[in-house]
């Protein structure tokens, strides 16, 4: 800290210069933030504005990044399309995503707690197995997994998407890192109070990794909601389809579908997630701010 105190003297001497530099710095940061936000959002607003245009005007130049027409016909066509039952697909997607998310929050946090805070023979070896399995490209196991699912008689059921996703090595890793950042004293104090391991996990430790849990929950939900390959591989029946497959239906026979309809379909499919996020965002990020570390 010696260097810091020295600096204080120098910086205090040149206050006007520092204010100017601070102002320039502020401006650069704000420009960066705003430009990035625009870049991130522009394609989506282009999609939204295009989905509201007459299909033959999909590729008009100059492009519009805000709605200039309100032709909700595209949405109407998609919703009433005989091929697409958006309510049913919504329910299918939601059901699978919810089950998978809740299951992962439980299984991952339990394992992560054990890996971070309990000592048992082979712990590091087990953890290494988890870690290594996280790095297995899904293509390696796509075929054998397919055969396992087939032998369990689960092809063409939602279980084929749910069961393999009941846990994730990613989640275990994420939460283990979170548990590790908690003060070790918490655990010891609880033990001295005579709490069982389950109580320590459930009542003491779990509430403190809320941010990690909500992050894992969100990403698990999104991962399941947006899963494209799984449904494509396993689901054959129209009435079991999920949203991403429904979008593909909109692309039509040999890709002949109408782009404005595809864009409208994508908008409809991200709308529930957007709604969820508009509420969950507060929860997640404020939850993170209230982390137990401070207490």
């Amino acid at each position: 800290m010696a260097t810091v105190s020295e600096r204080r003297i120098t910086t205090q001497r040149s206050r006007p210069g520092r204010a100017l530099a601070g102002f320039a710095g502020e401006a650069v940061i704000w420009a960066f933030l705003i430009i990035m936000a625009l870049i991130e959002f522009a394609p989506i607003s282009w999609m939204f504005s295009t989905s509201l245009r007459d299909p033959s005007r999909s590729f008009d130049l100059p492009p519009d990044f805000w709605p200039t027409a309100f032709n909700i016909g595209n949405y109407w066509t998609v919703i009433t399309s005989p091929d697409i039952d958006f309510l049913l697909f919504f329910w299918n997607s939601l059901k699978i995503a919810l089950i998978v998310t809740v299951a992962q929050l439980i299984t991952c946090s339990m394992a992560a707690f054990a890996f971070a805070r309990l000592r048992f023979r082979g712990r590091d070896a087990f953890f290494f197995v988890f870690l290594a399995s996280m790095m297995v490209p899904w293509t390696v196991i796509m075929v054998p997994t397919f055969i396992v699912i087939r032998n369990l008689g689960l092809s063409n059921t939602h279980w084929a998407l749910i069961l393999p996703a009941l846990t994730s090595a990613f989640g275990v890793f994420l939460l283990r890192q979170q548990f590790l950042t908690l003060p070790a004293e918490l655990m010891d104090a609880a033990k001295i109070d005579g709490a069982s391991y389950f109580r320590i996990y459930w009542q003491v430790m779990l509430p403190l990794v809320g941010p990690g849990l909500s992050a894992l929950g969100i990403f698990t939900f999104l991962g399941s909601w947006n899963n494209f390959l799984g449904p494509l591989l396993y689901l054959r029946d129209w009435d079991k389809f999920t949203f991403p497959i429904a979008i593909i239906q909109l692309e039509g026979y040999m890709g002949m579908g109408n782009r404005a309809h595809v864009l409208a379909g994508i908008m409809i499919s991200i709308f529930p997630v957007l709604l969820f996020f508009l509420f969950a965002q507060r929860f997640v990020i404020q939850g993170i701010a209230m982390t137990g570390l401070k207490g």
Binding site: A111, L118, R119, T167
Partner: peptide
């Protein structure tokens, strides 16, 4: 150790 195994079992 028992608790540890039990906790990692589902995953």
């Amino acid at each position: 150790a028992l608790a540890g195994y039990a906790f990692i079992l589902p995953a």
